[in-house]
Design a protein around this nucleic acid. Structure first.
Lengths: 196, 196
DNA sequence: GTCTATACGCGGATAGAC
DNA sequence: GTCTATCCGCGTATAGAC
């Protein structure tokens, strides 16, 4: 028998990685956020980690696997937020908690969020990824509140885009996390007609 | 003397292109929207136009020039919207008109808008492009209304991101343009406290 | 304006030694 | 787990003919 592998510290996360893999994923996320997925080469990732391309390929068979692993790291936090919200008693309370967690997540990962939501390569991979689709379904259902019809979908699309897009917006680049978080949350609540 | 070159039909636009260039720019915009700038090769653009790579290079010296030309095509429409809004008498009227034009623009160019606002290569090129920076400055000043302070910047960032991001959101992919436009405009007005 | 042909480097990916 | 070395195709870009 082999010794137990060291695992990445994602308590409750569905997928876990070896330490070497976790280092690669962390470097890749940063680079993807700055250059986009297509604009990030395996050489850049290897350099950032401090190893050769071949060492990276020993941990992940293809670049797509790295992209997916990078997305899953953040998906785990999103899933945790959803789970907490769904455990609340009552719709309004669930939506309120979800909103708080979403804003926290977005502000916390300022640089990553917009890439995860708009990079063409990332999008292509994620729409073929069933766990991700299920997650988005739960998210949208909860955000939509009472109105699942045509008119209810636009506000959900807007608030998702507003939160994710605002945190990377150059206009607020110099705002500290606390100010941004507070403003974002207040405005998002208003938009969704939740009580302050 | 040479015969007068045919010009692209952008009345009032600051930069004009020959017919061959306009065809390349149009094809490039579509491809950039789907694959991102880094994910789009000159070969793909040449194939879409129906010529060879060398022919493309005869019209534009570098790929960056194509990217900038693609951005300028949409910048011209944005500038026209700003000009119309600034010509209004009174701030509320100006903001109202700007909002209508922005939503029109976003819905009309559904696939392009988010790429123009989030593609890493495009962003890098545009922030070094003074005419673009001036345009964004005017846009943000007008959108911000009375409040140019810290707290006034977050709603501007949110509404920009919301409009641009919502039109590409998978949730509203099957909505027809009219429905999307009406919903988007109504919600944006409410968010900015403009009268319906 | 468009073509064929070509230069040269870097992209993703693999083999096999240590 | 990491390395050196290598494969092959495609990336941007250029030269020169038609």
């Amino acid at each position: 028998m082999h010794a137990v592998e060291p695992l990445a510290a994602i308590p409750g996360g569905p997928v876990r990685y070896r330490a070497a893999q976790a280092r690669i994923v962390a470097a890749a996320l940063e680079l993807f956020a700055v250059h986009g997925v297509a604009g990030t080469s395996l050489q850049m990732i290897a350099d950032a980690v401090g190893v050769t391309k071949a060492a990276v390929y020993h941990q992940f068979k293809t670049k797509d696997e790295i992209v997916l692993a990078a997305a899953e790291a953040d998906m785990a936090r999103l899933e945790a937020a959803l789970e907490a919200a769904e455990a609340e008693h009552g719709r309004p309370q669930a939506r309120e908690l979800l909103l708080v967690r979403l804003v926290d997540l977005a502000v916390d990962h300022r640089r990553m969020v917009s890439m995860l939501q708009s990079d063409p390569v990332m999008i292509r991979l994620l729409i073929e990824h069933e766990p991700f689709r299920r997650l988005m379904d739960r998210l949208h259902r909860l955000l939509a509140g009472d109105d699942p019809g045509d008119d209810g979908r636009v506000p959900v699309a807007m608030i998702s885009a507003a939160i994710a897009g605002a945190v990377t917006h150059p206009l607020v680049a110099d705002l500290d996390d606390e100010t941004l978080r507070a403003n974002l949350l207040g405005l998002a609540r208003r938009f969704l007609d939740l009580p302050d």
